[in-house]
Every structure is written in structure tokens, then in C-alpha cells.
Nucleic acid binder design. Structure first.
Length: 413
RNA sequence: CGGGGCGUAGCAUAAUGGUAGUGUUCACGGUUUGGGACCGUGCGGCCCGGGUUCGAUUCCCGGGCCCCGACCA
């Protein structure tokens, strides 16, 4: 894409109403726009990154048998009443509204209920199980206080998945299969080294649930990390009894602030029993389906990446989720350099390299500053200088290494 | 929900009970061209509603935003 037609602009100064680093940098770089507290729109660069994050998650979910769907945002009060999660006294963060035809609806805070009902239409035999379905969908939560930029909003994108199994044994296998896909996602977006599988409150169906916590001072959670075992325990369940269950010792653990980037839960038969989601086993006995749920917020993950990868001058995207792979910059008004850069841009695009081409009529400093801010992993500079050498200057952003390169080297990016 | 703070131009900020200044952005002209370069000219603003007052951007009340805490499958 030519930067001269990209409608977003970069800014020198951070907005005064944001404190979170992720929001400040993403707004300065033109990735997002704040609509109101805890509500953000995604602009061209931000959307490209968000879509890439989604694609990484999608590929890993599909790889463990996930079937993608998309459910409605508007919810049927009926099914939520059956699980006792409609009443404001039970769940206090609904956005509710009245229907003109009478009655009420609300914007989905999560989707166990509607999916259990959908599955009731399609599951009737043990032969139909297990099943794993997931979706990417905006969730709406009427939080008292939004904070931390895009990491905790009132409207946010969520990948929520749900498994349906015959019994606890089968559920455990499904649960582990989906859970074990998560580290592969974190590896691809470059945070596997600081992300820990963390034991947390399990609710009523199990001793523990598990979270994926990414070490960062911007996080809201406190966890205790066992670096060698690559696991952690959340402060909320940090007790001698639980440490004994997990075989952990206090003196081997380090206290850290962390961002909850993902979570996986055992749901048991709570939802299936309330909503009539049953199947017939081999003997013809009617049994409730055992469920699990698996969350991972792409927008929160995007915020996390900014918190842990960015530096004072701007964003630094891992290649897999960067809005573009290469930032091509032409400097000066030298007509030859311009022509060469134009042609190179065309050739690279033809070869399938995702290029943002800064063809604007702007000073070198302005272009470099904008480039630093946007954070595309590779930068290629063309100027009168590089032209005489017959090469382009290629810089790898993550390491800062810079060298003159042949055009062919750019094709392999 | 408890406590604190802030609302002034597209953005960031200053001053003021008698209608507001700076930087940046933007437009135009000129000089520049490897780190948001320089000079000149110009456009552009007191969040909304109510109250006090001769007069409110300024003081008071409510809505808004931010921060700390509580809450957070």
C-alpha cells in the first residue's frame, strides 16, 4: 500500500486521556481510534494486525479440530434465565435493552447458553461427540471501569470456543488438546518465552482452571512463576494446600505481574443440564453433555504485544502479525531514486511481499519517525546514496541490524 | 460503587469574573532533503445542560473523561 493514500496519520504526541502504553502508541501510530471509554475502532493498519492475529488463532484452532461459527450478539433472555445468568443480581455487567415488540434482549457477554442450545439441535447420539466449535465475536460487558487501553474494554473481540464431550474422561482429552494449542499461538506471536500456563480458580467443577498469563507490569494479575517447570499459580489460589496439590514449593516461585491472555475452563454439565443438551449412549441412556470453554481475546493479545514488544519510539511487531512485512522508504527528491522505488514497490507487490511504501513528499526525519512508530519488522531505504551502490538499505527492526542488500533478498521476506 | 483529578483550536498546553496566548497539525510562499529541518503569512478554540452574577471559559450543581481502589469465566 502506498502511504500517500493511507488515510491515517501518525502523531507526535500521545492523547492526554490515555495512560496505557498500548493505547498511546496504537493511537499515535494510527492503528486505532478511541470512541469512548473502553471502546475502540480499528483503522486500516490496526485491522490488518488484528486480522493476522485472528488468522494465527484460527489456524491453531482448526488444527485441533475446531469448527468456526459466528453467533449473534443479541441474546435471547429465555435461555439465560434458564441458567440463572440473566438477573442483574447474578450477572451485573449486561448491556440490556427493551424490544419494541415487548420483552428484553441483551448484548452477549459470553456464549455458553446460545451454543448449548444450538448444539441441542445437532447432538443426539454418542456418535455425534466430541465436538469443538469456536467463534470470533465482539463481547459486550458493561464494566464499571474500563482501563488498560484495548486490554480491558466494554466492547472487545473474543475468540471463544466450547467443547462438547460424552463424559469427563473424553472431556479431559478434548480440554487438553485445545489447551495445548494455546502455547503454539503464543509462540507464533512471539511471547511464548514470557507466557505461563497458570493455575487459577476452578469454580465448582474442578480444583483449578488454567490461564495463560504473560509477564508484564501492565498486567492486572499477580502470579507466582516456576521458571523451570514453565508453570505458574495465580495469587487468588496461592495457598499451601494448593501448592501441595500442584507439587510446588514457595521458595521456587517468583512473584510477577501478568496479563491474562487466555483461559480454559471445565464447565461440567451445568449448561447442558439447564438447556436440555443431552445424548443417548451405547445403551440408549440419556446423558448430559460435558462442556469446556476456551477463551483468547485477539484485541487483548494485540494490546499485550504492544506492551511487551514496543519501545520508546514506537511499536515493534513480530513478523507474523505485522500489518505489513516491509516498510519501503524513498528519501529525497532525486527523480531516479523515486522511479527506482516506484518500480521496486511494484515488483515486490507482484512477488507477494506485503509492502507499505512511504512515497510521501516528506522529510527523511519525518519518514523515519513515522516508520519507527508503525513498527513494521523490516525497513528498506532507497535514496540517491543507495542508488549509486546499486542496492537498498535493509534494516531489521527487532535487532536494529542494517546493511546494504540486493533486491532479491527482499523477495524472501 | 468509594476516593482523587481533569475538561480551552485536529493534537498538546497557558492565562483569566470583563471573549483567550504558545507549540504542533493544516493551507499558501520560499529555503531545505539520511532522523518529525528552517523562515514568513494565514485558518482555527473556552465540552453540554442548569444555577449565581450587570457580565461565566473562569464560581456552584448534574452529565463526560482520566487515575487509585473495589469488582472482573
Amino acid at each position: 500500500m502506498r502511504q500517500s493514500v493511507l488515510f491515517t496519520k501518525t502523531r507526535k504526541e500521545a492523547p492526554s486521556d490515555e495512560v496505557a502504553k498500548n493505547a498511546q502508541l496504537l493511537i499515535r501510530a494510527g492503528f486505532i481510534h478511541k470512541e469512548m471509554a473502553g471502546v475502540y475502532s480499528f483503522l486500516p493498519l490496526g485491522l490488518r494486525t488484528l486480522e493476522k492475529i485472528k488468522q494465527v488463532i484460527r489456524e491453531e484452532m482448526d488444527a485441533v479440530g475446531g469448527q468456526e461459527i459466528i453467533m449473534s450478539a443479541l441474546q435471547d433472555k429465555e435461555i439465560w434465565s434458564r441458567t440463572d445468568r440473566w438477573d442483574d443480581a447474578k450477572v451485573d455487567n449486561w448491556f440490556k435493552t427493551t424490544l419494541k415488540s415487548g420483552g428484553e434482549t441483551g448484548l452477549g457477554i459470553t456464549h455458553e447458553e446460545p451454543l448449548a442450545r444450538i448444539m441441542a439441535d445437532h447432538i443426539s447420539s454418542y456418535r455425534d461427540l466430541p465436538v469443538y466449535a469456536y467463534q470470533f465475536q465482539n463481547k459486550f460487558r458493561n464494566e464499571m471501569r474500563a482501563k488498560s487501553g484495548i486490554m480491558r474494554g466494554k466492547e472487545f473481540l473474543m475468540k471463544d470456543g466450547y467443547t462438547f464431550s460424552r463424559d469427563e474422561e473424553e472431556h479431559q482429552k478434548e480440554y487438553e488438546r485445545v489447551r495445548d494449542a494455546y502455547p503454539r499461538i503464543f509462540k507464533r506471536v512471539g511471547i511464548d518465552d514470557i507466557t505461563y500456563r497458570t493455575f487459577a480458580d476452578g469454580g465448582i467443577f474442578s480444583d483449578f482452571s488454567e490461564e495463560f498469563q504473560t509477564i508484564s507490569d501492565a498486567g492486572e494479575d499477580t502470579i507466582y512463576v516456576h521458571e523451570k517447570k514453565k508453570i505458574a499459580i495465580n495469587k487468588e489460589v496461592y495457598s499451601d494446600e494448593n501448592l501441595a496439590k500442584l507439587g510446588l514449593k514457595r521458595d521456587e516461585l517468583l512473584e510477577r505481574k501478568a496479563i491474562e491472555t487466555g483461559n480454559v475452563f471445565h464447565l461440567g454439565t451445568r449448561f447442558s443440564e439447564a438447556l436440555g443438551l443431552t445424548y443417548k449412549d451405547e445403551e440408549g441412556n440419556k446423558k448430559p453433555v460435558v462442556m469446556g470453554s476456551y477463551g483468547l481475546g485477539p484485541t487483548r493479545l494485540m494490546g499485550t504485544l504492544v506492551e511487551v514488544h514496543s519501545y520508546e519510539k514506537g511499536l515493534v511487531w513480530p513478523k507474523e502479525v505485522a500489518p505489513f512485512t516491509l516498510h519501503l522508504i524513498v528519501l529525497g527528491e532525486d527523480a531516479k531514486a523515486r522511479t527506482e522505488a516506484d518500480d521496486l514497490y511494484e515488483r515486490l507487490t507482484e512477488k507477494g511481499v506485503e509492502v507499505l511504501y512511504d512515497d510521501r513528499d516528506a522529510s527523511a526525519g519525518e519518514k523515519f519517525a513515522a516508520s519507527d512508530l508503525i513498527g513494521i519488522p523490516y525497513r528498506a531505504v532507497i535514496s540517491a546514496k543507495t542508488l549509486t551502490a546499486g542496492k537498498v538499505e535493509l534494516t531489521k527492526r527487532s535487532s536494529g541490524e542494517s546493511a546494504l542488500a540486493e533486491e532479491e533478498q527482499l523477495y524472501s521476506l
